[in-house]
């Protein structure tokens, strides 16, 4: 009896393992995922370290709600305002999607600042993580540019006049300012061309940059590891007088470069 059961189980396991092995053999993605999930982080990693993934979550909310909004929004000065009203008042759960996109933007910006403050207070921007700090600052700039370009899209009075001022502020910069203002405006007045431009930047250009930089940011986080809280008595990397306690045995040890030491 037990032998037959184990044969059945073996078959079942093979059935499950087959597609996984197939994918692993052809891509190495399963090994990569295992490395990502089972890689060791400092033992004193805590709630402080969730601010980065919280920011990423807010960004994903912006992406998903943004795609839905793009299905109904019309980037044309004659139709934009009406399409926003339609989304807010008539579309099923349209108000929720637009509301989450609108407030998600603020949450995203706040979380970026909190995340940055955490990294600053932990001194986590120091060697070897300097490059990731710089990428983070660029992400903050791109995030605020998303805010600036997205603000015009509802095409109401606040949107329009804030953008008039915003474009003129760009115009005050030396040398490049007037060209930048002209580029943003796109035409003789803030109108059709401006709205199309802001829409394209808000939907394609800046998100493209954000996706690329977020990918790099995460790659470096995984490659370099996260810093222990500096006040932790167990902080990884600090000189200790006493001999380190014995390591925990039993778990699979991530090898260097994503491979697996058995």
């Amino acid at each position: 009896m037990p032998r037959r059961k184990s044969a059945r189980r073996q078959k079942l396991e093979q059935l499950i393992a087959y597609p996984i092995d197939w994918l692993e053999e052809r891509s190495g993605l399963i090994g990569g995922l295992r490395y990502f999930l089972l890689r060791k982080v400092p033992g004193d990693t805590s709630w402080w370290h969730t601010l980065g993934s919280a920011t990423l979550t807010a960004f994903i909310v912006q992406t998903v709600t943004g795609v839905v909004l793009a299905m109904y929004y019309k980037p044309d000065p004659d139709k934009a305002y009406e399409s926003i009203r339609f989304i807010t008042d008539d579309l099923t759960f349209g108000w929720l999607v637009r509301g989450m996109h609108r407030w998600g933007a603020s949450v995203f910006i706040i979380l970026m600042f909190f995340h940055m403050a955490r990294v600053f207070l932990f001194g986590a921007y120091k060697y070897p993580r300097e490059l990731n700090w710089i990428i983070g600052v660029l992400l903050l700039v791109l995030g605020m540019l998303e805010g600036f370009t997205g603000y015009l899209l509802p095409w109401d009075q606040t949107a329009y006049w804030a953008t008039v001022v915003g474009i003129n502020l760009n115009g005050t910069a030396p040398f490049l300012g007037p060209f930048l203002a002209q580029f943003l405006q796109g035409g003789a007045e803030i109108g059709n061309e401006t709205l199309s431009r802001f829409y394209a930047m808000h939907m394609l250009l800046i998100p493209g940059g954000l996706f690329a930089l977020i990918g790099l940011h995460l790659y470096l986080v995984i490659r370099l590891g996260v810093s222990s809280p500096p006040w932790s008595p167990e902080a990884a990397g600090e000189e200790r007088v006493e001999a380190p306690p014995e390591g925990r045995a039993g778990l699979v040890q991530p090898g260097p470069r994503g491979g697996y030491a058995k």
Binding site: L37, K40, V41, P42, A54, W103, L111, G247, Q253, P254
Partner: peptide, 27 residues
Amino acid sequence: VNERGKPFYPYAMFHDTVMSLVVVSVI
């Protein structure tokens, strides 16, 4: 980290998941 750290899954991932749910709920 290698000697005394803990694996990302499930420990840190638990914190991250809870925090992400909080973020989505707040939004």
